[in-house]
Design a protein around this nucleic acid. Structure first.
Lengths: 113, 307
DNA sequence: CGCTATGAAACAAATTTTCCT
DNA sequence: TTAGGAAAATTTGTTTCATAG
């Protein structure tokens, strides 16, 4: 929860991917859903690093939201909110672990191109 | 002349975000004439867009019932939120005092506390009735408000407000009884007012779980591509049922929609179920959710259904 | 090599704000 | 001042390209 305390006031980039941070933001919200703007606010209030170069990281946030299937946009009475498909998120994560190069490379036959 | 209205020290009054009844055993603050459902607010970069009006062309009217005193009281007015949460001052809108020429028959004054509050007299000689013709609505820029520390509301698509009225009635002991009445919601965005479907009346509030009956909706901005969706949510907000109702496009008009109520998802329920439905034009233009109740087929023993 | 995370950008659609009669 | 309409500006979302690891 306050595992990011270190980054709240020190201007160093948090060692997590955008996807991880966005998920964290959404899952931290009481209703497990946030508007784009609220996600922005979570970034700036949680990380000093994201209080600079807004145009850049905000673009990256939007980019990640629509790129990853684990982020689902849901419409409601007011605008739209973003939610996390936890199943999908965990899937990406597990692939990264089991898909480690040395363990599952089926001995590619060396061959000139 | 008007200064006497301020007799009650501001600091002693309850905060604007406090919930408050619109009546007590002896008094009632009542909105006799509601404002129109639409009122385009003006920005600081624009000229005033006038006072909020009533559907008839006149203005909203508020009256305090049960007051026997001889002294006039102050009626406070501010702009409140209009969503499902409890009423509070709207961060993105402020009342705007209309300094009408001959049009404004009331006097007023302005105070602040983050939100502007108008105060006009409620006089015994007028039967404690006030015509609200001096309240306009100012729109603040979303970006300006959102950057305020502590503000968590979002301005985008948050364009509905309510006029909120308050009176503080002096009591023998030196204390006050405070009453508050909020108007129907008012859509303040030019675009939303022009495009969002609005349901003003519905033929019926419910029917049996079998559905099949025709429900006539009266409202605004209905179109040929208007659809009606029924849905059910649990307490924690999770949607558990959604069903599109069939609309009779031939009969439907810009302000009239003929809907065939769908059957409920579970026909064997024993208790009536409260659900919602809304009208939606295209992909995003949807009305506020409306209430609807499905009643069980066989009512244990309470009373017999007609027919 | 193949793949993921980042950045920068082009575009489109939805919504908000500013301007003009 | 008040009303309407709508151009101009911003936001929010989607996609594509490129590059470092």
């Amino acid at each position: 929860e306050d595992e990011f305390e270190l980054y709240r006031h020190t201007d160093i980039r948090p060692p997590f991917t955008y996807a991880t941070l966005i998920r964290q933001a959404i899952m931290t919200a009481s209703e497990r859903q946030l508007t784009l703007n609220e996600i922005y606010n979570w970034f700036t209030s949680t990380f000093a690093y994201f209080r600079r170069n807004a145009a850049t990281w905000k673009n990256a946030v939007r980019h990640n939201l629509s790129l990853h299937k684990c982020f689902v946009r849901v419409e409601n009475v007011k605008g739209a909110v973003w939610t996390v498909d936890e199943m999908e998120f965990q899937r990406r994560r597990s692939q990264k672990l089991t898909g480690s190069p040395t363990t599952m490379k089926p001995v590619p036959s060396s061959r000139a191109v | 002349l008007v200064s006497s209205l301020c007799s009650i020290p501001l600091a002693s009054l309850p905060p604007l975000e406090w919930p408050m009844p619109n009546h007590t055993e002896h008094y009632e603050l009542h909105i006799d004439v509601q404002p129109k459902p639409h009122h385009r607010a003006h920005y600081e970069t624009e000229g005033s867009r006038g006072a909020v009006k009533a559907p008839t062309g006149g203005h909203p009217v508020v009256q305090l019932h049960g007051y026997k005193g001889k002294e006039p009281l102050g009626l406070q007015i501010f702009i409140g939120t209009a969503d499902e949460r409890i009423l509070k001052p709207h961060a993105f809108y402020q009342v705007h005092r209309i300094t009408g020429k001959t049009v404004t028959t009331t006097s007023l004054e302005k105070i602040v506390n983050g939100t502007k509050v108008l105060e006009i007299p409620l006089e015994p000689k007028n039967n404690m009735k006030a015509i609200i013709d001096c309240a306009g609505i100012l729109k603040l820029r979303n970006a300006d408000i959102e950057l305020r520390k502590g503000e968590t509301d979002i301005g985008r698509k948050n364009t509905r407000v309510r006029l909120v009225f308050r009176v503080h009635i002096p009591q023998p002991g030196g204390q006050h009884i405070s009453l508050q009445a909020a108007s129907h919601p008012i859509e303040c965005s030019q675009r939303s007012a022009h495009e969002l479907p609005l349901v003003e009346k519905q033929d019926m509030d419910g029917c049996s779980v079998l559905g099949g009956q025709q429900m006539i909706l009266t409202g605004q901005n209905f179109s040929s591509d208007s659809r009606v969706i029924f849905m059910e949510k649990t307490q924690d907000g999770q949607q558990i049922w959604e069903m599109e109702a069939t609309v009779d496009k031939d009969k439907s008009q810009p302000n009239l929609l003929f809907v065939e109520v769908p059957s409920y998802r579970e026909l064997s329920v024993c208790h009536s179920v409260k659900v919602h439905f809304y009208v939606i034009n295209g992909k995003r233009k949807r009305s506020q959710p409306q209430h609807f109740t499905f009643t069980p087929l066989s009512v244990p023993s309470i009373k017999t259904e007609p027919q």
